[in-house]
């Protein structure tokens, strides 16, 4: 069974067969949940809906192939899942929100720091012209690269390395997403962002995104950051009448 699953991931085409095994319906449920939650993220998005292109891609991406086999039954639950090496695959709603906030266009080049399982790169790939993804942990980088290739994401390039210095040969970038836990924002990344480009960073622990940090690079090269909670939360109770 494990061998079959491994082959399914590694051999192009067989992933789709496995994908048909009841996962499409669960993916559709996942998208409905994301749409429902989007109402809560109105402050972050500035509107009540996630970009339909993002939802369309997520509705086609076989998330179950990006999680450990023992967790495939839970792949479409709206929650983060462990993928080993102290890393997680983000909650689908957060992936949708971050991808939407990145506002990727079809001609864009996007950098991802922290490939993890490769799911975020797989979601970005159909939306952008080119996706370059760096992973610090060699084992994760290797398996994500194989997985993405097997699924036919030729537009995604992966490599193992230090995300601090970005990937200058691949840039400059219209968008950067830093999915690795970051206690600081590496200045070289800001340097590789095109004027008008945008960086999205989820801040928080492995199983809890505390807020999303958006870095906008202005036309004059200066940066402006915005910090948004993924939820609609007012820290006050209403004033009593």
């Amino acid at each position: 069974m494990a061998l079959c699953a491994a082959l399914a991931v590694l051999l192009p085409g067989t992933g789709r067969a496995l994908d048909e095994d009841g996962h499409a319906a669960r993916r559709a449920d996942m998208i409905r949940v994301i749409e429902r939650h989007a109402f809560s993220a109105v402050k972050a998005l500035g509107r009540r809906r996630i970009d339909s292109r993002v939802l369309d891609v997520m509705g086609r991406t076989p998330r179950h192939l990006f999680v450990p086999e023992r967790l495939r039954g839970e792949a479409y639950d709206d929650r983060p899942l462990p993928i080993g090496y102290g890393q997680t695959i983000s909650q689908p709603f957060i992936v949708a929100l971050m991808t939407d906030l990145l506002a990727v266009g079809p001609e864009d080049v996007v950098l991802e720091v922290g490939t993890g399982s490769g799911y975020q790169a797989a979601v970005l790939a159909p939306l952008a012209r080119r996706v370059c993804s760096i992973e610090i942990i060699p084992e994760l980088a290797r398996s994500a690269g194989q997985r993405l290739e097997a699924l036919g994401h030729a537009g995604v390039e992966t490599r193992t390395g230090d995300g601090y210095y970005g990937w200058p040969e691949c840039g400059p970038y219209d968008g950067i997403v830093v999915t690795a836990a970051a206690s600081q924002i590496p200045p070289p990344l800001v340097g590789q962002l095109k004027p008008g480009g945008r960086m999205v960073i989820p801040v928080g622990g492995p199983f809890a995104t505390q807020w999303l940090m958006l870095v906008d690079k202005l036309a004059d090269g200066r940066v402006k950051t915005r910090q948004v909670l993924p939820v609609a939360f007012v820290p006050f109770t209403r004033r009593s009448p």
């Binding site: 709603f93 995104t209 939820v231 939360f233």
Partner: peptide, 18 residues
């Protein structure tokens, strides 16, 4: 305590850290 129901409700929407 009075904020707990709201925190639990927001958990699935990315509010677990609250």
């Amino acid at each position: 305590w009075r904020a707990l129901p709201e925190f639990l409700e927001l958990r699935a929407q990315g509010g677990a850290a609250l």
